[in-house]
C-alpha cells in the first residue's frame, strides 16, 4: 500500500483523481438522468441529475418508436454467433499454427499478421459488391462473416496461437500414445487447457461484434434488422433532430447490461484487453 505523507497529501491525491474521473463517470450519470426526464426538462438549463418529474414512459416509448426489442435481440444473437464461430475457427487454426509442422505455415502466419492492423474501411467497398453478388444485402450474414474472417478473426487466431505456443507439448504426449488423432488431441487435451485464452478472445470478440457500426450501416436498410448501435443513432424527429430523452433511454438500455457485466468481471475483462493490446 502506498502511504501518504500527510492527510493533506492524501486529500489532494483523491481530489485530483476524482476531478480526472469526472469526464469518465459524468456521461453515464447524465445519460441515466436524461433517460427519465421529460423533453422539456432536458432543454431547460438545469444541471440537476435528479429529474423534477420522473418520466419512466421514455423507456416504453423506446420500444414503440422502433422495434427496439427485436434490434436488441439481433445484436445479442449476432454477437453470440460471431463469438462462438470465432472461438472455434481461431482455436483450430491457432492450434495448427502453434503445434503442427506443415509446409506453408510460416508464410500463412506472416500473411495473417500483416492483416492485424488493417481497418475494415479499406475492404468495405469490395465486400459491399461481394455481398450483393452473394445476395446477402440487407441480411445479417455480412455482420457475421466479416468479423469472423477479417482482422478481428485474424487477431483471435494470433492470440490463440500465442497461447498454444506457451503450453508444454508434453501435456499432449499421453494422448498421442493412446492413439488419438490430431483433432482428438486438440479437442480433448489442448482446448480444455486453453480456457483462459478462450475467455479472453471470447470477451473481446463479443464486444467487437456488439459495438460494430460501419457494417450494419452499410449492409442493413430494414429497420427490423438493425443492430443496437445503428438503432441508437436512429431516435430522431421528423426534421432529423435527436429526440434526446428517447436516445438516452435507449442508450442506457444498451450500455447498462454491459457495464454490469464489466463491473462484475472487471479483472477478467481488463486482462483480456491487455492481452490483445500486448500481442497486437
Amino acid at each position: 500500500m502506498t502511504r501518504f505523507h500527510s492527510p493533506f497529501v492524501r486529500a489532494c491525491w483523491y481530489l485530483s483523481l476524482a476531478i480526472l474521473a469526472v469526464p469518465f463517470v459524468f456521461p453515464f450519470l447524465w445519460m441515466l438522468s436524461g433517460a427519465v426526464k421529460p423533453q422539456a426538462e432536458i432543454f431547460s438549463s438545469s444541471l440537476s441529475l435528479m429529474p423534477k418529474t420522473w418520466r419512466w414512459e421514455n423507456y416504453a416509448e423506446v420500444f414503440s418508436y422502433q422495434p427496439f426489442a427485436r434490434q436488441y435481440f439481433n445484436s445479442l444473437y449476432i454477437a453470440t454467433v460471431v463469438t462462438a464461430g470465432t472461438l472455434f475457427l481461431s482455436s483450430l487454426a491457432g492450434y495448427a499454427l502453434a503445434r503442427i509442422r506443415f509446409a506453408g505455415s510460416g508464410l500463412l502466419l506472416l500473411v495473417l499478421i500483416s492483416a492485424l492492423m488493417m481497418p475494415e474501411e479499406v475492404t468495405i467497398i469490395p465486400n459491399f459488391f461481394l455481398m450483393k453478388w452473394f445476395g446477402l444485402m440487407n441480411t445479417h450474414a455480412p455482420l457475421i462473416l466479416l468479423p469472423m474472417f477479417g482482422s478481428q478473426g485474424v487477431m483471435a487466431t494470433f492470440l490463440m496461437r500465442q497461447y498454444f505456443m506457451a503450453l508444454p507439448p508434453e501435456l499432449e504426449d499421453a494422448a498421442r500414445m493412446d492413439g488419438l488423432s490430431r483433432f482428438g488431441i486438440f479437442w480433448k487435451v489442448a482446448l480444455p487447457l486453453s480456457r483462459p485464452a478462450l475467455a479472453a478472445v471470447g470477451i473481446i470478440t463479443f464486444l467487437f461484434s456488439w459495438n460494430l457500426f460501419l457494417e450494419p450501416l452499410v449492409f442493413l436498410s430494414d429497420i427490423e434488422l438493425f443492430t443496437l448501435p445503428l438503432a441508437l443513432s436512429n431516435f430522431t424527429d421528423a426534421y432529423g433532430l435527436p429526440l434526446w430523452h428517447l436516445q438516452m433511454a435507449a442508450t442506457s438500455l444498451a450500455v447498462i447490461p454491459i457495464l454490469i457485466v464489466y463491473i462484475a468481471a472487471q479483472r477478467q475483462i481488463v486482462e483480456s484487453f491487455a492481452l490483445s493490446g500486448v500481442k497486437g
Binding site: L92, L108, M118, G153
Partner: peptide, 19 residues
C-alpha cells in the same frame, strides 16, 4: 501436413474471400 491444412483451412478460405 494434411491435419495442419485442414485445421487452418476454414479461416484461411474465409480470409481469402473476405479480406
Amino acid at each position: 501436413a494434411i491435419a495442419g491444412w485442414l485445421f487452418v483451412s476454414p479461416i484461411t478460405i474465409g480470409f481469402l474471400i473476405f479480406f
